[in-house]
Amino acid sequence: MKKFLLLAVLGVVFVPSASVFAQEQAPSGSVDPVARCEAMVETSKERYDANQTRNADNASRISATIEKLEAFITKANELGADTSVLSSDMQTLSTYMNELEADYQAVQDNLSVMMQSDCETMTAEEYRSQVTNAKSLFEALRANVTAIRDLRTTIKTHIDEILSTIKE
């Protein structure tokens, strides 16, 4: 019984102490702001290059899609189908393409600024602001890509309707 009481007392004394010790040793409390900034600059360069490649691929895909849709609409019209709704989808896709290009440019411009950060003088507040801004701009770009992927479903539905009409 005495042993249990002794263990309980020791536990009450040492467990909180260990917790405090662990907090003091945590890396978050001792992150080197310069190293963190340099990591951000490096990431910005990587994202910049990756975005460039990805955006070129996305733009190429949308352009090719519009060409294919134009060919589809022309052919379907020859077969007497009503393609007005699909034409409207194509216009929407064209609008999304312009918006995506603008969003992409905003992301890249911001990354360019981040790449040129002076890590010796950058404050923690400036760092947080830049990262938050980068995430926000990227979310706008991601939303645009999501809208295009949703439009893909709509286009598929309208194409299927036209094909059904032609086959009847």
């Binding site: 990431t43 910005s44 990587e46 994202r47 990756a50 975005n51 990805r54 691929d57 996305n58 895909r61 949308i62 090719a64 899609t65 294919k68 849709l69 589809f72 980068a134 995430k135 990227f138 979310e139 770009l141 991601r142 645009n144 890509v145 999501t146 295009i148 992927r149 439009l151 893909r152 286009i155 598929k156 194409i159």
Partner: peptide, 14 residues
């Protein structure tokens, strides 16, 4: 058309 739009990729913010 479906393949082209299906390949659209936003990537990651990083």
């Amino acid at each position: 058309v479906d393949d082209l739009l299906g390949g659209m990729d936003a990537g990651e913010s990083g």
